[in-house]
Computed example of a mutant assay.
Amino acid sequence: MKTIKPTKIGAYSSCKSELRSSEMGDLWAAYMGNSMSKCVLSYFLKQVEDKDIKGTLEHSLSLCEDFLGKIEKIFRSVNHPIPIAFTKDDVNLDAPRLFDDEFYLHYLRQMIRAGINLYALSVPLSTRTDVSEFFIQCVDETMKLVNILNDLLERKGASPKTPVIPVPEKASFVQNEDYFNGYLGKIRPLHALEIKHLFDMVGANSVNKALLFAFSQVSESEKIKQFFKKGEELIANTLETYTHYLTENHLPALPLLDHMVTTSKFSPFSDKLMLFHTIDLFTLRIRDIGNSIAENGRHDLGLTLFKKLTTVGFYVQDGAKLMLENGWMEKISHAPKWE
């Protein structure tokens, strides 16, 4: 049997083939996300006091810069324009502190989840050697960061752990359709995957709520400020709904993080960056809801999730319109238009 030798990550093979649509789109999305994260992490590093958290932020920032440089190299190999994305004009490193140190850990946890989702899904669709190797490196380095972050959260006593449930006495099968009930008849407790998704979505939305709370304090545009407040209200309603499903099953839910936002009124970020970030986070919530629907088995929870999907979708659409109004919506590559 032929042995496959491991490829040295980073030493990308020369590849003259054109970029496929999936590669072009995923590289563009990765560039936009890492460009935004570079601005955010640079500001966090100016404010952080905890040495352990600072080290993790520095490591995260170095990954962003490395990924950006490699994407630029691939784009230049096919004469693809480098996205404008975000620059030093989108961050004010001298702005006062807007978040407590612990918030940086919860924020990083959510952004890492977003990165892993993008990078992992990109690997099987990438056919160019350099692109495939790049996304494999992204997955590998991001997973290493996950372990570093989880260890730090544990040491700081801030690790968000899913609830413990009893181990079944034996393997068994569902006996009747009552298993799917949610409104009438006998309603079963939540199963393990339903608990996982609800718990995870509570954690993600708690970070989002605190972030929007902060953004609404410092935004310079009244219209965009109101958009952030609307999003905060949407999340508050969502958290109430998800938490209810957990508490009615006597399961714990994660607390809010709003107390980790300071009273500063000076924005460290441009409205463009904050609006893009908000849309990006809510887009991730759409993915979370979709994953939850796919593994749900109760009619009531399924309907609730479908309603949330619609609500979040309309909110993202409103945000996209604001980006368009302000001339901030950068265009991704698309198929040719035939006359």
Rank of each mutant, 00 (worst) to 15 (best):
F135D: 07
F135P: 07
F227H: 08
I224S: 05
K156V: 09
L145R: 12
E194W: 05
S159G: 03
F228T: 01
F199R: 00
V139T: 11
Q175N: 04
G157M: 03
S132M: 15
A158Q: 07
A192V: 08
T162R: 05
P168R: 01
V164R: 09
S206E: 15
E220I: 01
M201Y: 02
F227D: 00
V202Y: 04
V207G: 02
E169M: 09
N147Y: 10
T127I: 14
R188Q: 06
H191Y: 10
K230A: 06
V202D: 03
I165T: 15
G185P: 05
Q226I: 05
Y179Q: 00
L211P: 01
L149P: 03
K186I: 03
K196N: 15
F135Y: 13
D178T: 07
N147I: 00
S172T: 10
Q217P: 10
Y183C: 00
P160V: 04
P163A: 07
N150S: 09
V139Y: 13
P189N: 14
E141Q: 08
L145A: 13
K186G: 01
P166G: 03
I187H: 02
T162V: 15
V164Q: 08
C138L: 03
C138S: 15
M143K: 09
H197Y: 15
E222H: 06
S159F: 12
L193H: 13
Q137I: 00
D140C: 07
N205R: 11
L193K: 14
K186D: 05
F213Y: 15
F134L: 15
F213S: 10
K186T: 08
K223L: 13
E222R: 07
I136S: 13
H197Q: 13
R188W: 12
V164W: 06
H191E: 12
Q217S: 14
H191N: 14
Q175D: 04
K144V: 05
G203A: 07
P168T: 04
S216C: 08
I195A: 12
D200V: 01
F228G: 02
V164S: 11
S126E: 12
N205P: 12
I136T: 14
G203N: 12
I224D: 10
F173T: 09
V164H: 09
K156Y: 07
F213C: 08
L152Q: 08
L184A: 05
V131D: 12
G157N: 06
A158D: 00
M201L: 09
R155T: 12
K170P: 02
I195E: 14
T142C: 04
D178R: 10
F173P: 00
D151R: 06
A158Y: 06
Q217E: 14
S206R: 11
P163V: 04
P189A: 11
E177T: 10
F135L: 14
F228K: 02
S219K: 10
N208H: 11
R188F: 15
D178K: 12
F199G: 00
K229E: 11
M201V: 06
Q137A: 11
L211S: 09
S172G: 05
N181S: 07
V207Y: 04
S219Y: 03
V164P: 00
K230D: 15
I136W: 02
L212C: 05
Q226M: 12
D140P: 01
E222P: 01
K223H: 13
E222Q: 13
P168F: 02
H191I: 06
P166K: 02
E222S: 13
V146D: 03
K229S: 09
P124E: 02
C138P: 02
T142G: 06
V131K: 09
